[in-house]
Design a protein around this nucleic acid. Sequence first.
DNA 1: CCTCTTTTTGAGAGCTACTCTCATTTCATG
DNA 2: CATGAAATGAGAGTAGCTCTCAAAAAGAGG
Lengths: 218, 218
Amino acid sequence: MTDNEGMTMARTPVRGPARQLGLRERKKIKTRMAIREATYDLIKEQGYDATTVEQIAERAEVSPSTVFRYFPTKEDIVLTDEYDPLVEDLMRGRPEDEPVLESVRWAIREAMAMAFTDNPERQQEEMVLRARLAVEVPQVRSRLMESMSVTGHMLCRAIAERTGRAEQDLEVRVYSMALMGAMLETLVYWGEHGCRDDLGELIDRTLDTFQDLPRRLP
Amino acid sequence: MTDNEGMTMARTPVRGPARQLGLRERKKIKTRMAIREATYDLIKEQGYDATTVEQIAERAEVSPSTVFRYFPTKEDIVLTDEYDPLVEDLMRGRPEDEPVLESVRWAIREAMAMAFTDNPERQQEEMVLRARLAVEVPQVRSRLMESMSVTGHMLCRAIAERTGRAEQDLEVRVYSMALMGAMLETLVYWGEHGCRDDLGELIDRTLDTFQDLPRRLP
DNA sequence: CCTCTTTTTGAGAGCTACTCTCATTTCATG
DNA sequence: CATGAAATGAGAGTAGCTCTCAAAAAGAGG
């Protein structure tokens, strides 16, 4: 049951005979979004812990069972939204001889830009909420770390492909997860400082730091 | 279960020259260990998920309430045992001008050595179990990551102290968490490979990799 | 429009981690 | 031994999550 979410608006089915979403799939997307938005709103109103799945279901006008059918855990409602495939694709599009870190830098920047193209308001707001929850709610932070590890594996694949090394090489994995740890901490840092800084700039600084770690801290 | 003390009545508190723990505290330590061992054994028998807190309580001969009084969550029973203060102390003992990474390397090595001094069998066994669970059980892995983040903060303090930087400096934090990500991945790697490799050697390799990251992966 | 199949949903029962409260037991001490 | 403090157990309660099964909705075809 790999759910392939489109994450785009359900309105205006694409013209053309080839790809027409049926009513069923459009409804699924709508339900998914309804659950998400209900969750975001409730959390903003009363906080994460005080928000029960039952309440979420009620506001989204579905049954609790359905909520769990769409999201495996409560935390996932907040923070599942797959950047990974996007970033992976973007990285694959970079020239072979580019330093890995530069590809990463470019891919992240591009992914963020794309995410913000439609409905930048809402996207920004959700990012802030996620960062805040990552700071405040241990469960969410844990879950976020877990998803970072998935991203890390993606990065392993990309690096392996690029450098010709094995995907399971210890060095490759260490490199990837170190980078993920760095990125996650950047997000937490951003959240702890009230999300006032420019996240893109922080990420740039992090990548700079990462680029020559040994020189940074003797 | 084989701990200090001989089950005396201790009617009169023996005020010997050496510091003697009261019966209460000795009992607490015993209970804590009993819960841990019951958990380890049950997990070995039937796996993590199949082991309920009720079973653990029963085997440890305490009530379920007591289990939760000693450990905040089920995961904590498996993987709480604070290396952090030890490592922090060890790091503080290193010369000021030593490169941070070398202090880390030394502290970890020393901490491992100390952990293995008494009852190396059992220690090794528990380490293996933890690594295996970190690989197999998402909840445990999450919790482990969470605790790594705590260790990361400790590392931040140590680095800040050593280098005179602010503890909240983005670079310091990025450095620390990158290192933690690397260490955690090393543990996972070890676990995935059946804990057959020498963990100390893997850690050494990881630290080597970390030492000159930019040269490792162009 | 009606029928048949497949997918999606809701209702409800059930499990378990975890919390809280309160009475009881166990230790410490004068 | 008496008194106070701490640890425990019993039990009730909450919420996340799973599973099952039957009803409802959507698609395809006549």
